[in-house]
């Protein structure tokens, strides 16, 4: 009888191949020279819930892991190239490019590692994309880019690439603390008809399979991330949107105060991991 039920159901499935297993103990070096910390002691603010923090890279299959070891194999580097072109191109009424104020992209090494961070002039927390838009609207006389849209993501990928190997170091106290606290609250709120929080999947169950997906800690040190699934570079807040949607909830919008706060909080959960973007994920 039981066999019967299973057999009836089996008839409707065509594939049965197991997912490629991840190598959680592998180490990452990019281009044979940039050592990336993909696992380290959890930052102090997480010590009551996690011992170690791990990059999503550790949870991917060997093949996906390998794509990130050499820039020639990393499709996300095409976005970086495009970002470099945008960086050097004049735009807006003031006749300036990013490079006119900031020089070579390499001079921005270390910037990505500390974002999101408090911006005193604006009196709020800025993501790196918001900072880029601030430069565009206030200094270049150019239009703001949409959150996680092509040019914003490519320039973010450029700035991530020149910080690769540097430790994520997002400040959680000081004037940005209230925003960080809002992000933390959102991280632990169980949303939607499935009543699931970020923590349910990424804190309580990382390493476990949920259907065909190997759950990671949902870290964002590797963003922007090139996903084999949608074959493009993906932004942090678009990723959040997908995860919230999957709880059968009404999502927040990329660019909203809520997602800015959540980005700050989740970034701080990766303090100590290396900046890794553009990374490759499935």
């Amino acid at each position: 009888m039981k066999k019967g039920i299973a057999a009836i159901l089996a008839a409707s499935t065509i594939f049965g191949a197991a997912t490629a297993t991840a190598d959680e103990s592998a180490e990452l070096t990019v281009n044979g020279e940039i050592d990336i910390v993909t696992k380290t002691a959890a930052p102090a603010h997480l010590s009551d819930v996690l011992d170690e923090v791990m990059s999503g890279w550790r949870f991917r299959s060997d093949q996906t892991q390998e794509m990130q070891m050499d820039d020639f194999d990393n499709p996300g580097m095409l976005g970086v190239e495009n970002g470099a072109e945008i960086w050097a191109t004049v735009d807006g009424s003031e006749g300036k490019s990013c490079a006119d104020c900031h020089g070579e992209p390499e001079e921005m090494a270390g910037v990505k590692a500390v974002y999101p961070k408090w911006n005193a002039q604006a009196g709020k927390v800025f993501t790196l994309q918001m900072q880029a838009n601030d430069c565009r609207t206030n200094r270049m006389g150019a239009e703001a880019w949409g959150t996680d849209k092509g040019p914003a993501i490519d320039v973010e990928a450029l700035l991530a690439s020149v910080s690769r190997g540097m430790p994520v170091n997002v400040a959680i106290d000081g004037p940005g603390h209230e925003t960080w606290k809002l992000g933390k609250e959102l991280y632990y709120t169980r949303t939607g008809q499935l009543e699931l929080s970020c923590a349910n999947c990424h804190e309580d169950n990382y390493g476990n399979m949920i259907r065909a997906d190997h759950l990671s800690q949902g870290q964002i040190n590797g963003f922007p991330t090139y996903r084999l699934k949608n074959t493009k570079l993906n932004g942090v807040q678009s990723r959040f949107k997908g995860c919230v949607r999957d709880t059968r909830a009404q999502t927040y919008k990329p660019g909203s105060d809520e997602f800015v706060a959540l980005e700050m909080y989740v970034a701080s959960r990766g303090n100590g991991l290396s900046v890794e973007g553009p990374s490759v994920r499935n």
Binding site: G192, R245, T247, A249
Partner: peptide
């Protein structure tokens, strides 16, 4: 963590199935 399969109240930001909309 197991969802409540026969419940209709008390949700936070209940969405329209998996659309992400309210």
């Amino acid at each position: 963590m197991m969802p409540s399969f026969y419940k209709t109240e008390g949700f936070i930001r209940l969405g329209k199935a998996y659309t992400g909309k309210a």
